[in-house]
């Protein structure tokens, strides 16, 4: 092998190496990182969501039984990569399982003397305070929880998280109770939900 030739670096060469090197480095690192992180930037810093901020009908308050939760499935529109609002993109949806129960499983008195036709503002207020609209994803690691009627509890199959009918944490490793959806009850008794959670961020829902 030939001897390595070690020429001195001139001042001009040093400056060119420094500036051009920095520019090339910046072009090759900043856009790729921003490209990869764009969902993170949009979600965490700009507060954008993949699911439009709309109400979706779940069911009626008159269907929710006493002593046991009712499971609904609701389909939210979802805009993500090739599915979006742009007419040139496809339409995507995300399906959620929503658990609805009355506080402590007791049908509130406001519902007993309410008619299917219309609820008054005060009735709606009372029902709203008595209704639990919960995600069925365990607050620990997101596994689907299920209702065991003989135990009157929700159990998570993954690590044994236990919740009561209100979604409150009874035992196991979860850090908190089940996640509650933002919901509203309308005059006809319809329950409407948003893809938004009032106590923490469940992420994979």
């Amino acid at each position: 092998m030939a001897e390595l030739q070690k020429d001195p670096v001139t001042r001009a060469q040093f400056i060119v190496m420094g500036t051009v090197g920095t520019l090339v480095g910046a072009v090759l690192t900043i856009p790729p990182v921003a490209f990869m992180l764009s969902p993170t930037i949009k979600t965490n810093f700009l507060g954008q969501s993949d699911v439009p901020d709309d109400w979706h009908e779940l069911g009626s308050v008159f269907e929710v039984p006493s002593g046991t939760p009712k499971l609904y499935r609701v389909e939210f529109p979802q805009n993500q990569t090739y599915n979006g609002e742009d007419p040139l993109l496809g339409k995507g949806t995300i399906m959620n399982a929503v658990l609805v129960s009355w506080m402590d499983g007791e049908i509130p008195s406001a519902l007993e003397n309410a008619s299917q036709g219309g609820l008054s503002a005060s009735q709606i207020e009372e029902l709203t305070s008595q209704l639990n609209v919960m995600s069925n994803h365990c607050a620990h690691l997101g596994c689907p929880v299920r209702w065991f009627p003989d135990r009157d509890e929700f159990l998570c199959p993954c690590h044994g998280g236990i919740y009561d009918i209100n979604g409150g944490l009874i035992g196991g490793p979860p850090p908190q109770g089940l996640y509650y959806y933002a919901f509203e009850i309308r005059e006809d008794g319809g329950i409407y939900v948003k893809h938004e959670f009032t106590n923490g961020e469940p992420w994979v829902v």
Partner: peptide
């Protein structure tokens, strides 16, 4: 944590991304 989650999800929900 929340940055890791949105990075892996490619958004705030699980989907095509």
């Amino acid at each position: 944590g929340s940055y890791v989650a949105t990075f892996l999800l490619g958004g705030d929900t699980v989907g095509p991304a």
